[in-house]
């Protein structure tokens, strides 16, 4: 096992994550779509705004955040202002493009119809703005999966080893660094830091 070691997601001291880097062809990106929708764990610096996290840490372009990621949920609550909503450790952050219907319009950030969902709107920071290393569950929906998914994958996602094995076998992926644990390791329950590069088409 020659993979790099990272702090283990479940917070157990003295353990570390195995890092595996793989390459896949562009048409295999859709294998990650179920994961993106259910949520992927990523290691980030928490205690910052959504905008700082997405643009400063994940590398999402400012204009893309403004124009394309028009619907954002933090812990299940629609967000209107990405600069004031604070992402804490363990938060669930969901990103979507503009959605159809009156409800789609209601849920958009800062939209005209926000009053119609005021009962669930994200209002005050629910997390401290103290910076610290932490983890969030990031959900990507609809076109954001295709557009921002590769960026997130390249940076690395934390998922159970058993899921990695299944995914990589489905995709015929090439592992370019790191090894998947085989024996002498709790491979079913262990988390892996998987970084994936999408090959140019």
């Amino acid at each position: 096992m020659n993979g790099q070691k990272f702090p283990r997601f479940n917070g157990q001291s003295g353990t570390a994550l195995t890092k595996v880097k793989a390459q896949i062809s562009p048409n295999m990106l859709s294998c990650f779509f179920p994961l993106f929708q259910q949520g992927i764990t990523v290691e980030v610096e928490t205690g910052c705004s959504i905008k700082e996290l997405l643009c400063g840490q994940l590398g999402i372009d400012n204009a893309y955040l403004e124009e394309r990621i028009t619907t954002i949920f933090l812990n299940g609550k629609p967000v209107d202002d990405c600069t004031t909503a604070i992402v804490g450790d363990g938060a669930v952050l969901a990103l979507s493009a503009a959605m159809p219907g009156l409800v789609g319009a209601m849920l958009r950030k800062g939209g005209f119809y926000t009053a119609m969902r005021s009962a669930i709107t994200y209002r005050t920071p629910s997390a401290d703005s103290i910076r610290a290393n932490g983890h969030i569950r990031l959900k990507l929906f609809n076109s954001i999966m295709e557009e921002a998914g590769p960026l997130v994958l390249r940076r690395g996602i934390i998922i159970p080893c058993s899921r990695v094995m299944k995914l990589l076998s489905e995709m015929s992926a090439e592992i370019i660094s790191g090894d998947l644990p085989t024996s002498g390791y709790d491979s079913a329950g262990a988390d892996i830091l998987l970084a994936v590069e999408i090959l140019a088409s």
Binding site: I120, F141, N142
Partner: peptide, 17 residues
């Protein structure tokens, strides 16, 4: 959004909300 995913694209969003 609608051409690519149809109206069911709302499922994840409503669920998240």
């Amino acid at each position: 959004g609608l051409p690519a995913y149809g109206t069911s694209v709302l499922t994840n969003i409503l669920n998240e909300a």
